[in-house]
């Protein structure tokens, strides 16, 4: 398989793709036009289940199975990082040196941490009403926790953030998503079907049936996954050093 041959195969494949792509493009509705076949159906299905944020309805109601796939991808990638960045035999763990941080930054970080946490939880809770949702809120919550590393040093962060708990939270979030899906089966309809819980009144916190619950599980899973991911990166960058003996 010489390089030239690989280039030829790439060229043939690219040409084939280009031909099909150009054939498909003229049949797409014009950009910015008023005919949106998929959009109308998605909005109708979302309003039927009284979910104000149609994107959340698509994510967690109409195509909840795809979101399960995406969530498992995040879970697997964090698992892979934990395996790859583990401390090998010839590496030793050095306790992190206390960093010298200007006082205003420390006060700002300590004040901003709870505010960012509440903003993240707000974004998770209102996923089916306003822009946001489990993933965005989860990332904000995880970043809020790491304000301690920025405001103080890694020692302070480690004292507050037991990694084991977040690994369990990561797995529990993924498991809760599955259990909510099975609830649809137990209730007699299909997996991840939005028929189990009532749809509540439109544009309130309890609207959308299963959507807010799935949002919360995704929020918990993403927040814990990002904390575990950052924990591994921080360990490698700050604490773990190779044996200097060799």
């Amino acid at each position: 398989m010489s390089r030239r041959l690989r280039m030829w195969i790439l060229a043939v494949g690219a040409l084939g793709f280009a031909a099909l792509f150009c054939a498909a493009c003229p049949r797409l509705p014009a950009f910015g036009g008023d005919s949106h076949p998929y959009g109308e159906r998605a909005v109708r299905a979302a309003l039927a289940h009284r979910t104000a944020n149609v994107v959340a309805a698509v994510n967690f109601d109409q195509r909840a199975f795809d979101t399960l796939g995406e969530e498992s991808i995040l879970f697997a990638s964090v698992l892979g990082t934990v395996v790859l960045l583990r401390q090998t035999r010839e590496e030793r763990e050095v306790p992190p040196a206390p960093a010298r941080v200007p006082l205003p930054v420390r006060r700002y970080a300590l004040l901003l941490l709870p505010v960012a946490l509440v903003v993240g939880l707000y974004v998770v809770a209102h996923g089916q009403l306003s822009p946001g949702g489990g993933f965005q809120g989860g990332v904000v919550v995880a970043t809020a926790l790491h304000l301690l590393y920025i405001g103080a040093d890694y020692r302070a962060l480690e004292r507050v953030r037991p990694v084991g708990v977040y690994e369990i939270g990561d797995a529990a979030g993924e498991g809760a998503y599955l259990v909510l899906g099975l609830a649809g089966l137990v209730a007699g309809s299909s997996f991840l079907a939005n028929t189990v819980i009532g749809y509540g009144t439109f544009n309130t916190l309890a609207s959308g049936g299963i959507v807010p619950l799935l949002n919360m599980t995704v929020g918990m899973e993403v927040a814990c996954a990002v904390v575990v991911l950052l924990a591994r990166f921080l360990d490698q960058a700050v604490e773990i050093e190779e044996e200097s003996g060799r």
Partner: peptide
């Protein structure tokens, strides 16, 4: 008004990003 949430998240996380660079 729902777009103000975007400005809110950016106002919270933006300066944190700069502090990460400074740190």
């Amino acid at each position: 008004p729902a777009y103000t949430d975007l400005a809110l998240v950016l106002a919270v996380l933006g300066p944190v990003g700069t502090l990460v660079f400074a740190r």
